[in-house]
């Protein structure tokens, strides 16, 4: 939410997403993430600024739109996102970047990586030994066993399908990622 958005508009937006405040918060985070992925996959260099733009526009319109809107609010977010993307694509910016634009030797880049690793270490330590073990065994190949064999074995041990295991591991990773983002935002 931008600083200029009136708090009551943002309240209205949350109420539109779900009547329960906690559920609305979750939904809001989910929409932000979906928007971020949408712009990133559309090769927008700075997806966050466009995500903010979409949220800002929807928040301003919510009092007008929400009462008569049929369906999930996420559909409306997508419609606004498409418009914002089209506007961005018309702007005279350089879309393609040279391959070496991320110079991993600069001080800034090194500090960022250190901060990331530090946060990763802290967030990893917050996971239970069971979760750590599942993540390791799912992600890391330990010869002579192939990764696919290790995953089959793990799914059997946990008495779940490989599909369910795949989703579970993804959610573990997502939790760690969110924890890192929170920590890095605090430390930055």
């Amino acid at each position: 939410m931008s600083d200029q958005t009136p708090p009551e508009d943002f309240e209205r937006l949350l109420n539109w997403l779900a009547s329960d405040r906690e559920a609305a918060g979750r939904k809001y985070e989910e929409i932000r993430r979906t928007l971020h992925n949408y712009f990133r996959r559309r090769e927008v260099a700075d997806p966050l600024s466009l995500v903010d733009e979409v949220i800002e526009r929807v928040t301003c319109k919510v009092a007008e739109v929400a009462p008569g809107f049929i369906g999930e609010p996420s559909h409306y977010f997508l419609a606004v996102a498409r418009r914002v993307l089209a506007e961005w694509q018309r702007r005279p910016v350089e879309k393609e970047l040279p391959l070496d634009i991320i110079d991993s030797t600069t001080n800034e880049s090194i500090t960022h990586k250190e901060l990331l690793l530090q946060s990763l270490e802290e967030c990893w330590a917050k996971r239970t030994p069971r979760e750590q073990s599942i993540l390791y065994r799912y992600c890391v190949e330990t010869p002579p066993f192939k990764l696919s064999e290790a995953r089959d074995e793990l799914a059997r041990e946990l008495e779940m399908s490989l599909t369910a295991l795949r989703v579970m591991v993804h959610r573990f990773k997502k939790t760690i990622r969110r924890c890192i983002e929170r920590l890095m935002a605090k430390k930055a």
Partner: peptide, 29 residues
């Protein structure tokens, strides 16, 4: 994925995460 800064950051994160997790075998292993 290599021409957009955000996608490259995503790739970089995946790489770092994998390197990190590879250095953390469970106690039994």
């Amino acid at each position: 994925y290599k021409h957009s800064l955000a996608n490259r950051a995503e790739l970089e994160y995946e790489k770092i995460f994998h390197q990190f997790i590879s250095s953390k075998p469970p106690t039994s292993q």
